[in-house]
C-alpha cells in the first residue's frame, strides 16, 4: 500500500482532533461518572439502580420504534415517487421536506402544543363540524406524533438518496425478464434501497429514543421517557453519576439494537 503523503495526513488532522476532544474524551468522562460515586470511588451502585428504570427504558424504546416504523411507512413510497420525478420537481419536493427544519425544534414542538390543545386549532375545526373534541395533548399518541413530525426528514432523505441512484435500466431489465410490479419491488427496489432504510431508521430511532423535550411538551409531563430521567438527574437531582450510567446504558442498548438491525438487513458492511 502506498504511504500517505504528509498533506493527506494533515488533511485528516482537524477531524481527528475534533473527534478526540468532543467525542472520545467526553465518552470516557461518561464512563468514569457511571462507575463512580460522588466522592469519585469506584461503585456499581449506579448500574444496579438502573433496574428501577426498566419500564422507562421499555416505554422509550416502544415509542421510538413505533415512530420509526410510521416514518418508514410514510417515507418509503414518498421517497420512491420523489426519485422518479423530473429534476425540478425533485428540487421542490426536497425543499418542502427540509422546510420545517429551518425552524428550531423547540419552536416547532411548542407550536404543536397549541395546535393539539383542548381548545386548539384541530379541536376548533372539529367542533365547527359538530364533532366531539379529541383529547390529544398529554397522550402517548401526541408524543409519538411529535417524534414523527420532527424526525421524518431524516427518514426521507437517506431513502431518497439511494432510490435516486437506482438505475432505471435495472427496473427495465426486471420488467423485460418478466417481473410484475410486486416482484420488481421485492427483488430489485427493496434490496437496493435497504442501506437507505437502515440509515433512515437509525436516524429517526436514535433521537426519538433519547428525546426529552418532545415528551415534556406534548406529553404534558405525564409521559416519562428515558431522556426525561437523564435530564432530571443532571438538572434537578444533581446526580451526574446516575445520569451518566443511564446515558451509558442507553448508548449500549442503541448500539446493540443497531447491530441486530444491520444483521437482519443481511449486509455486514453496513455496521452503523
Amino acid at each position: 500500500m502506498k504511504k500517505k503523503s504528509l498533506l493527506q495526513q494533515a488533511a485528516g488532522a482537524p477531524y481527528i482532533v475534533w473527534a478526540a476532544l468532543f467525542i472520545i474524551i467526553p465518552l470516557f468522562i461518561v464512563v468514569y461518572y457511571a462507575f463512580t460515586d460522588k466522592t469519585g470511588a469506584f461503585t456499581m451502585d449506579n448500574i444496579a439502580s438502573l433496574a428501577d428504570y426498566k419500564e422507562t427504558f421499555l416505554i422509550s424504546f416502544e415509542y421510538a420504534f413505533i415512530a420509526s416504523l410510521i416514518c418508514l411507512a410514510i417515507s418509503y413510497p414518498f421517497a420512491y415517487i420523489m426519485s422518479r420525478k423530473g429534476p425540478a420537481a425533485q428540487r421542490i419536493m426536497m425543499m418542502l421536506v427540509m422546510l420545517p427544519m429551518w425552524m428550531n425544534l423547540l419552536i416547532r414542538t411548542y407550536s404543536w402544543m397549541n395546535i393539539l390543545e383542548r381548545n386548539g386549532i384541530i379541536n376548533n375545526i372539529l367542533e365547527n363540524f359538530g364533532m366531539e373534541p379529541l383529547k390529544m395533548i398529554g397522550t402517548p399518541g401526541a408524543v409519538i406524533f411529535g417524534m414523527i413530525y420532527n424526525y421524518i426528514p431524516y427518514m426521507i432523505i437517506p431513502i431518497y438518496n439511494v432510490m435516486s441512484k437506482i438505475e432505471p435500466s435495472l427496473l427495465e431489465a426486471a420488467e423485460d425478464l418478466g417481473s410484475g410490479s410486486l416482484s420488481k419491488l421485492r427483488r430489485v427496489i427493496l434490496p437496493l434501497s435497504m442501506p437507505g432504510v437502515i440509515s433512515g431508521f437509525t436516524m429517526v430511532f436514535v433521537p426519538s429514543v433519547s428525546t426529552f423535550y418532545i415528551s415534556q411538551k406534548l406529553g404534558g409531563g405525564k409521559v416519562m421517557l428515558i431522556g426525561d430521567a437523564i435530564e432530571r438527574q443532571m438538572q434537578t437531582s444533581y446526580n451526574y453519576n446516575l445520569g451518566a450510567s443511564l446515558s451509558l446504558v442507553l448508548m449500549v442498548v442503541i448500539l446493540v439494537s443497531m447491530v441486530i438491525l444491520n444483521r437482519f438487513a443481511g449486509d455486514d458492511d453496513l455496521l452503523i
Binding site: 402544543m113 390543545e117 395533548i137 398529554g138 404534558g220 409531563g221 405525564k222
Partner: peptide, 11 residues
C-alpha cells in the same frame, strides 16, 4: 390530572 406543567400553565 390533565398535565404537569411549569410555564405551559400560562397558555
Amino acid at each position: 390530572l390533565q398535565a404537569r406543567v411549569m410555564d405551559e400553565v400560562f397558555n
